[in-house]
Amino acid sequence: MEKLAALWKRPLFRIGLGLFLFLVLAGAVGGIYLTQIPPEQPIQFPHAFHVGVGAQCLYCHPGADSGPVAGLPSSGKCWGCHQQIAKKSPELVKLAGFIERNEPIPWVPVAIQPDFVHFNHQPHVAAGVDCATCHGDVAKMKTAEPQRGQNMGWCLDCHQKMRPQEFLRLGDCATCHY
């Protein structure tokens, strides 16, 4: 105890400790901030434009109403339309580059769940949950943006509100965690 008190009297120790706490806090704030902004994507894909010209969500994410994973479109699917469209923007040149090199596009997932959460799109779509409920209004987004506060409380809250009579099932740990 005395040793600690002696340490506390040294100004350098106080400064060091302060610096340490500041760094921890800064790291945490930075980390939280990182999860709230859209990540850097290989191509600045404009969702707003595609939704605007009438593309349905299910056209590019066909698994959403039939399986656990919505899925990303194959680059072949992008190219199906875009090889007939003039590559005016630099983003489309990038797409052409991926196609030419026969490389998959390394998308960074935005709506991501940890390994221990098993989310299944199909029952949610079947229950009439709109895509925008969880993914935000992508018609107003350029690249996909992460949505705030998507934690377990948020899941359970919705489960309870939408289906109180089925909450035994929908509030069960094993519904998502296995």
């Binding site: 760094l23 945490a28 980390g31 680059s75 960074v108």
Partner: peptide
């Protein structure tokens, strides 16, 4: 110290930033 702060960030955010190092590579066809 920076390592500690990164770890703290990871703990406080439920490993959120880790997802920034994940990429999904869809099929070409």
């Amino acid at each position: 110290l920076t390592g500690v702060s990164a770890a703290a960030a990871a703990v406080l955010t439920g490993c959120g930033p880790a997802s920034r190092y994940v990429t999904r590579r869809p099929y070409q066809d």
